[in-house]
Design a protein around this nucleic acid. Structure first.
Lengths: 220, 220, 220, 220
DNA sequence: GATGAATGAGGCTTCATTCAT
DNA sequence: GATGAATGAAGCCTCATTCAT
């Protein structure tokens, strides 16, 4: 359950006579390197550097991903997918609904969900069907966590899944160039403070209105 | 006109004979444009674009700021300073110490304190004396807000000024390319949730240890 | 009358406070170098080489012409314009109408009208208004030459201006890499043979139908 | 008579144990695809595209032709050979000597002899013995057509085989990217005009001197 | 023998910075 | 002092060619 629940699908169906083993490995290495370097240096990191980190020639990268947008697409997909896995794990394995939400939030930080933020800016298709589907899957999983915690009276009722995901992403956004060193020192503290603020009973009245992920995606 | 104004100034300190009025105005416009564009498009925005927004030639920008680092320096200084002003205002004008902290947090968001985050990455001297001093000033002001709220029993005691400022910065970090549109829709909600988490009594035990701004700056 | 009858126009009109002298010179040098190198090596010649021949930095080329298409556009415009000038000269200065046409054909070869052929392939806007206008002007001028020669009974009547211009272009198309050396040795011979074929009375019946330049431009 | 009058020569001398049938077919398909695509897109067409059109892997192409020059060599050879075939056909089947020349000229256009022009530029060995021999064969065949037409008094006497072949090539040179669509609409008209100019009696005095194909090849 | 994949060199284009008016 | 223009270094991407299955 750990790894690529999505990327490895759809291989043995059609005409394509099976990708070669080393090619698959290369592709995987590129995505991994890209994820790491996007996290560490931001989404403008030179693709040649990504290729070097992946230990492949730059043209191999371009063979697999025609342009930067394609690579970003893949990384966003991977991070979203892995994060969703964490949400489903938390839902399945934690009996206390607020503990489940809490576990997910901290796990999502470790998956570097915050790295998605800067990537959402670039010129890539945020409405791509694959992405849309994966985002829906994430939203549903987190929606499950939220609604159960809310039903149990553990979560304040004036927030929605969008609030959780956006704040979570912001709080875990990496600082380019720092190598994420501060994440382990501070981020989990701040996430915990945020979770404390989410807990019922509400200690204040919130401005604005709760929102879904789709609201975020749209131009407001 | 030039000679008159120069002759009229009675200052005998330095060699520089007081900059011309339009030169000062230009410098100010550049800093303002840079602050806006750093917020809107991130710290990698082309300097030619900044110059255009400021309605000056690019060479004028370089006359005032020898390189990008110098401009970033100035903007960081300005944002820090303005944010400090907000902290001092809040301290002076709010009687309730937690309300003061709260007011500061929301005001700092409007000053785009979050824009500092990405700028702290680039190759500019974070230890410059001017910056150090301004950061100290900010830290002291916020330290005042925090300690008073804590003394009044309104703030949980396991946090420190570093927690407030870092989380505040992260939660208000702009998404490049979005024109900050989401700030007004979501950010203040999430700040409020964070503030609720800060309030005493503490609802959880925090991982890690509280820290100052200087801790953040260092390589851990 | 020799040179840039078009490029030098429209300078002193508007807001733009007059381009600097050296900038104009640079622009002119770039266009000249591009024309020469397109002729000599074809339209795929590296732009860095064009810049080198023009003795400017490559970025200067890109400042003046955002991409290859813009540069091709300018060169096509220049060649067309200069060729039109030759047509008008011939019309004005030759009394015999067939001699006028003949003089134009040979002069157009010297203007390297054949270099237009390969450039018409690339991804640039062949319907740009400027180009359209210039092409019309050329067509009108040559149409004048043709119709007068035809009226005088010197030209066969089953051809049209498109035939003259297309065949002329083809016969004078440079061979990339040869430095046009063969032009002076052979091209004028073949043009003369073609002219002899154009002369009345017609010695054969032509297949197909006569056409205008616009017909050529369209996807047939 | 159609195809490889030269390449398939059944010499059984050497070591190579006769290529497999599918290998031969592949080689043939590559040459055909290359010829078509050189005509359609020019001699710089990516070899991967040629391989795709030939429906073979790119490495298969490189197995048969070590580099682009080798492929160009083969295509030039093939086109030259097929054109020579047309010349010999015309000589054999037409009783009127000028009609034979005329028939050859139009047939050569259909063989895309014009596509040779751009290929003669690239970095391939134009003096390769095979090519030299083939070019001689073509020249002899056309020389036969020319001299017989001239002897019959049907052809002006101030031209030579080089004039015919060069002008013929130029007039039929494809415009890259157009898919040769204009060939059928215009080229045969212009060839006819050229033939009319070739016919005796000469209507003008030609500049320069007549030349052979070898003259063309040399740097003058 | 045939193939898909990998590679490095090279062209295009942008941008921080410097220069000439 | 202010400006537009010039520049070289660097990133993106393509393609001829080589390698591993």
């Amino acid at each position: 359950m750990e790894t690529v629940s999505r990327a490895a699908t759809g291989v043995t169906r059609s005409r394509t006579p099976r990708p070669r083993a080393d090619a698959l490995r290369n592709r995987e290495r590129i995505v991994t390197a890209a994820r790491e370097m996007f996290v560490e240096f931001g989404p403008d990191v030179p693709l040649d550097e990504v290729a070097r980190r992946a230990a492949v020639g730059n043209a191999t990268l371009y063979r697999n991903f025609p342009d930067r947008a394609a690579l970003v697409h893949e990384v966003v997909l991977a991070v979203t997918s892995r994060t969703t896995d964490r949400a489903e794990e938390a839902a399945a394995e934690e009996s206390d609904p607020f503990a489940a939400l809490s576990r997910f939030v901290h796990a999502a930080a470790d998956e570097r969900i915050g790295a998605l933020c800067p990537m959402l800016s670039g010129g890539f298709d945020k409405d791509h069907p694959e992405l849309l589907a994966e985002r829906r899957r994430l939203e549903e999983a987190v929606e499950g966590l939220v609604s159960r915690a809310m039903s149990a009276g553990r979560l304040r009722t004036d927030i929605a899944v969008g609030d959780v995901l956006v704040a979570l992403s912001q709080l875990t956004r990496p600082l380019p160039g720092t190598g994420c060193l501060h994440i382990d020192r501070f981020t989990h503290r701040h996430l915990q403070l945020f979770l404390d603020g989410l807990e019922a009973p509400a200690r204040s009245e919130l401005p604005g209105t709760a929102a879904t992920l789709e609201d975020l995606r749209r131009r407001p």
